[in-house]
Design a binder for these strands. Structure first.
Lengths: 221, 221
DNA sequence: ACCTGAACACCGTTCAAGT
DNA sequence: ACCTGAACACCGTTCAAGT
């Protein structure tokens, strides 16, 4: 299992193959099938293993809002260390002990906040969905591709002119979008910082939204 | 392109292979490479194509909050019709015309709400991250696997006893989690309805959170 | 400009056979 | 109980060769 997680961290979800894992463990690839059944199950086992890395907050001591925030940041950190994680849990619904331990704490947190019954389920799910979406967008490949594109246009100046012309054409059709892109460029932010700020904003927004619901203060329509 | 989208809708992202696509179009698989370069590019082209299905709200007419809600539901619908979409945009960062058109409208919406500069970028991203995460969890495979598990345990009663014993053991360790699962079962909800309700709750929570920020009414800490 | 066929280097998985 | 090797049915992609 440890070997599998190392391979996943290093080479991603497609970089893990039964043959490579076998090689790493010094035995035939097909030997793996005796232990884990198939690749799907291997991924599920690996992802559950990794959940236990999270240190849970002391909910009664810190209060629901800091606890919720801590949980959100912890999941984000986990997804960051193991880029393949979100992909696995979203395609295979891997619900084992490691994840149960985490979810129990999430329930404790939002129960402490005052959510009950179905509301409690939804309150637990909403921040989790946000973190999941976030983890994807900041996933290795996306960020990597952005950098690769920048590098490409730097290496091929003849293509850059073409790219700029295309961007200008889009700017005419989508003024707000291009204004925002320009502003981002002027702020001189990298992709990673941008993502961190979106995350921080989103966390507080969702916590505010949950607080508003608790106070019966939804603006509705 | 239409053939590729049909194949993707029908068989998912792994069901689309160059060979199958070639067969569907009555030519050699390798002919595809002349037109689209490689599979990654094929997926990017397909995903951008599909964004234009969305009908955009008339923001000034309906106001920011209904417009934002409409956009969120529209994206959810889109991801539901094309289960492979989120997967592609999250792994390849496919930003073409179709997506630009949508994003322009999102910027218009949150600009109308009163967000400016970096706040505007974040306000646009937050709901989008939530929808993305949501689309994953309700993705075809996850839902399918849940049903498959239910069916399996129904078919193999000898294994069901074992599964129940395992669940009870978990219940002792994770009381809140198992209480919630029991309550869900008693409400007699299917997985799909559950997901719809989480989505509805999350949408309003996020809109509330954004409204709170606009009103300078964040509860902070 | 557009398409083909053969070929290469990979996959996951099964299964009979070994110890 | 645990492992091996050969084999099967797939992949994406390249490239010389055709029209």
């Amino acid at each position: 299992m440890r070997a599998a997680i190392e391979l996943l961290d290093a080479e991603g979800i497609d970089g893990l193959s039964m043959r490579k894992l076998g090689q790493k463990l010094g035995s035939a690839a097909t030997a793996m099938y005796w232990h884990v059944g198939n690749k799907e199950n291997l991924l599920i086992l690996a992802s559950d293993e990794v959940w236990s890395e999270i240190t849970l907050p002391d909910v009664p001591a810190v209060g629901w809002r800091p606890a919720a925030r801590e949980l959100m940041y912890a999941v984000r950190g986990l997804c960051d260390r193991h880029r393949w994680l979100v992909r696995v849990i979203t395609t295979y619904y891997a619900a084992g002990e490691g994840m149960a331990r985490f979810q129990e704490c999430a329930y404790e947190t939002f129960d402490a906040a005052g959510f009950r019954d179905a509301d409690l389920d939804w309150a637990v799910s909403t921040p989790f969905m946000f973190v999941t979406g976030m983890a994807f967008m900041s996933g290795s490949e996306v960020a990597g591709i952005k950098e690769r594109a920048d590098q490409e246009s730097a290496e091929q100046p003849e293509k850059e002119a073409e790219a700029i012309a295309q961007i200008n054409a889009l700017a005419a059709k989508y003024p707000r979008l291009s204004a925002s892109m320009e502003a981002q460029a002027q702020r001189g932010q990298g992709f990673a910082e941008q993502v961190d700020e979106v995350f921080a904003f989103g966390v507080e927004t969702i916590l505010d939204g949950l607080a508003a619901r608790l106070a019966g203060r939804s603006d509705a329509v």
